[in-house]
């Protein structure tokens, strides 16, 4: 063994020398790299939701209010392609009816009634023409634009993102959505706001090249192509919840959190059962282990 490893060591010594040379170059060679763009955004803090924590659940009334905000405000520009009307009535959803737990979501009267408010395009099987027909619960949410190009054309070149998983697709999730929707501010003096853009400190961005003020006081945040949407009385809630902008934003953030993670409550409840079971099983196995090893000195 010793001879063998000695042999290898001699063979590798040359390799080692060249590796060290490379390392030396790497460490003390060209050190400066071009400065990277620094993206900043204000931290989304100071908002809480009923579904946080291991025991948190969605507030169904708030989910319904949130759906209303989406349907009446957001859906004018934003699609939710991954959701179907039936999803609204699935267990844990905004329009789930706990009195009929075994009713398939697609048969739910609520899902049917909501779907019936929308027309979706289809093909007439007799004529082959493209037609508009009444949606069914199995249909996906109606998209406001037929394709990405139409969406951009109608929004000054900006594409309103699909909201199906937006609460998972943004750092900060629902808290970020809430803060962003309410966080529009007057641009500080010294900031040039491009046409069709709005300043929002919660939107991640790099303001460096739009800022004429002191270089060490570049404002945090970025530009967003969506104007402020949620204002008091924009959406009238059916359950007499006051139509403040805060309530609207909180409700729609809750709804979007559910839409992005519709099995969240089921997941956490399953998790609690799994953890409890594993704790018991682990305890029993530990006792078994102590029993088996009790006479072995080790």
């Amino acid at each position: 063994m010793t001879d063998l490893s000695m042999g290898f060591r001699t063979a590798f010594s040359r390799v080692r020398v060249s590796m060290l040379a490379v390392l030396a170059v790497a460490l003390f060679g060209v050190a400066a790299q071009p400065a990277l763009a620094k993206t900043t955004a204000r931290e989304a803090e100071g908002v809480s939701f009923s579904f946080e924590g291991p025991f948190g659940v969605f507030d169904q009334a708030e989910l319904q209010r949130g759906y209303k905000v989406y349907a009446e405000v957001c859906s004018a520009c934003h699609s939710m392609k991954l959701l179907s009307y039936r999803d609204l009535a699935q267990a844990g959803g905004p329009f789930y009816d706990p009195k009929h737990p075994n009713l398939p979501p697609a048969q739910s009267p609520y899902a049917k009634a909501i779907a019936a408010q929308y027309k979706v395009s289809d093909i007439d099987h007799d004529t082959g023409d493209v037609i508009e027909r009444t949606a069914t619960p199995a249909d996906h949410f109606r998209a406001p634009f037929p394709n990405e190009y139409a969406a951009r054309a109608a929004n000054g070149g900006a594409l309103p993102p699909d909201l199906s998983v937006i609460a998972r697709a943004r750092e900060g999730g629902p808290a970020y959505i809430y803060k962003l929707l309410l966080g529009y501010e007057e641009p500080p003096k010294g900031m040039t706001v491009p046409d069709g853009k709005y300043y929002n400190p919660y939107m991640p961005g790099d303001m460096g090249s739009f800022w004429s003020g002191p270089k060490d006081k570049v404002p945090e945040g970025g530009f967003i192509s969506m104007a402020k949407q949620l204002t008091p009385d924009r959406v009238q809630f059916d359950d007499k919840t006051p139509s403040t902008a805060e309530n609207e934003a909180h409700a729609v953030a809750t709804f979007l959190a559910w839409a992005a993670d519709p099995h969240m409550v089921e997941r956490k409840q399953t998790g609690l059962a799994v953890m409890l079971f594993l704790l018991v099983f682990t305890g029993l196995t530990y006792l078994s282990y102590r029993q088996i090893w009790r006479n072995v000195a080790h």
């Binding site: 079971f277 018991v280 029993l284 006792l287 078994s288 029993q291 009790r294 006479n295």
Partner: peptide, 21 residues
């Protein structure tokens, strides 16, 4: 060793729990 019943019980309980899992 001594107390064969208690010992067996622990092993059986652990294995039964595993089967349930």
């Amino acid at each position: 060793g001594e107390e064969p019943h208690r010992r067996d019980f622990i092993h059986i309980a652990a294995m039964a729990t595993g089967a349930v899992g």
